[in-house]
């Protein structure tokens, strides 16, 4: 579960307000899609949930643990896929996964099974011994996804996870996200692909210029807009009109 209470974040010494007093709650067993135009504050919000950025105001709880006050405990709950897969290029794939597994204190057997299973599914097993620098964008993305799932996290946070993935890997990831949520875990992800959000999310949140302008199900959005349109059209209207 993720709870965001009155969270704000500014950049350039308070000159640019990236996120303005937002409130959100993402429940257990739910896939929550976070939508918004470029520069709306999606990545800033995600970085605050994962402890990369510190909120100027407000509080964030991951499974009831305050991210700022107990960062290590809170991060133990999270698996994170960033928007840019540029990671330790000089390590090999297997070295990276072992590093992540050590940090999350995953024991030998569990990590072997998880790496074996996920590397097989995402078709990167043959590349595990190569340096990450030689991977394509999509392969790096797959490796990061495996790393994020290695400790079976109760909260999975993904920033634009489908960018760069081939259709098969994208399908596998969507299936995995559904299964992970059905097992009682929380999934929070940002995307620009409306069809994915429409098909995959239990609820969505729309952010614009640092403020949440809608949270709820797609049906609730349709009721508010009094239109039975696609999410794409509803999103465009909402973002343009608000």
């Amino acid at each position: 579960m993720i709870t965001i209470n009155n969270v704000s974040k500014t950049y350039s010494r308070g000159k640019v307000k990236a996120v303005n007093s937002i409130n959100l709650e993402v429940k257990k067993g739910e896939i929550f899609g976070f939508l918004g135009p470029n520069g709306a504050g999606k990545t800033t919000t995600i970085k605050m949930i994962t402890g990369i950025l510190k909120p100027d105001e407000g509080q964030i709880f991951v499974n009831g643990i305050n991210v700022v006050e107990e960062p290590i405990k809170a991060k133990q709950q999270i698996g994170f896929v960033p928007d840019n897969p540029e990671i330790f290029n000089r390590l090999t794939g297997i070295e990276y996964l072992n590093f992540i597994a050590d940090i999350y204190e995953v024991d030998g057997n569990q990590r072997y099974e998880k790496i074996n299973e996920l590397a097989e599914i995402f078709e990167v097993k043959d590349a595990l011994n190569s340096s990450i620098g030689s991977y394509s964008h999509g392969m790096k993305q797959k490796l990061i996804i495996i790393g994020a799932l290695i400790h079976n996290p109760p909260v999975l946070i993904l920033d634009e996870p489908l960018v760069g993935l081939d259709p098969k890997a994208a399908f596998v990831l969507k299936e995995m996200m559904r299964k992970h949520a059905d097992n009682g875990n929380t999934i929070f992800f940002s995307t620009h692909i409306m069809e994915v959000a429409e098909r995959l999310c239990d609820r969505i949140g729309i952010i614009k210029k640092g403020e949440i302008i809608f949270t709820g199900t797609l049906d609730e959005l349709r009721q508010i807009r009094k239109e039975n349109d696609s999410l794409e059209n509803l999103f465009l209207e909402l973002v343009d009109n608000e």
Partner: peptide, 23 residues
């Protein structure tokens, strides 16, 4: 790209838990 593929045995051997500081 490296062509050194990893077999099951090697994978099993490398996936061992280590002390955090050593990691």
């Amino acid at each position: 790209k490296s062509t050194k593929r990893m077999d099951e045995k090697q994978l099993k051997k490398t996936t061992k838990k280590r002390n955090l500081l050593i990691t």
